[in-house]
Amino acid sequence: MLDTIQAINKTAAFNRWAGFEVTRAAAGEAELRMEWREEDMGQYAGFLHAGLIGAMLDTACGFAAATVAGRVLASHFSVNCLSPALGRAFIARGKVVKAGRKQVFTTAELYGQGDGGSLKLVATGSAILVPVEEPPPAK
């Protein structure tokens, strides 16, 4: 399962730019890691930009959902920023709360990782994802 989610991650241009690395995937769970880049990831005060916080939470939720429902698209997601996002890296952990035929409910947590490897919770999120059919082959 990890290989499948890692392969999906590599097809997304945004994920490649951001440096998202899928570090774990199991039934109903996924974990991402992203190294901090001061030159293009911060907001005006030097913390991780909320757009990237949302992207990591959304992606972790989507990959967790994909482990049980296949191809999915987000129909709703929300983000709660709990503290300034600081770290040398960031780790997002997503999990499925309930998977139905038409909707998959997920949650995620985002942690800032310090120099010593310690983790601090900086944001949480939730997403509702919708299973979609595979696209037809390109002609």
Rank of each mutant, 00 (worst) to 15 (best):
I91N: 01
G70M: 12
H76W: 09
C81D: 00
A92M: 07
A85N: 03
S83Y: 01
L73V: 13
R93G: 05
R71Q: 15
A92Y: 04
G70F: 12
G94K: 10
V68K: 09
S78V: 03
S75I: 09
N80S: 11
S83N: 07
H76N: 12
A66M: 15
T67K: 08
A92S: 12
A69C: 11
S78Y: 02
V68P: 06
K95Y: 14
S78D: 13
L73S: 03
A66V: 08
T67F: 12
A65G: 05
F77N: 05
F77S: 02
V68R: 06
A74F: 01
S83P: 05
R71P: 02
A89N: 08
G94P: 05
R93Y: 07
A74G: 12
F90W: 05
A92W: 05
G87D: 11
L86V: 13
V68E: 12
R93Q: 15
T67Q: 09
A65T: 08
A74E: 04
A69N: 05
A85G: 14
S75A: 14
R71D: 13
H76G: 06
P84D: 07
A92K: 10
G70N: 11
A74L: 06
A66H: 14
V72W: 12
T67R: 08
F90E: 04
A65E: 07
S83A: 15
F90Q: 03
A65S: 12
F77K: 05
F90D: 01
A89R: 11
A65M: 06
A92T: 04
R88M: 13
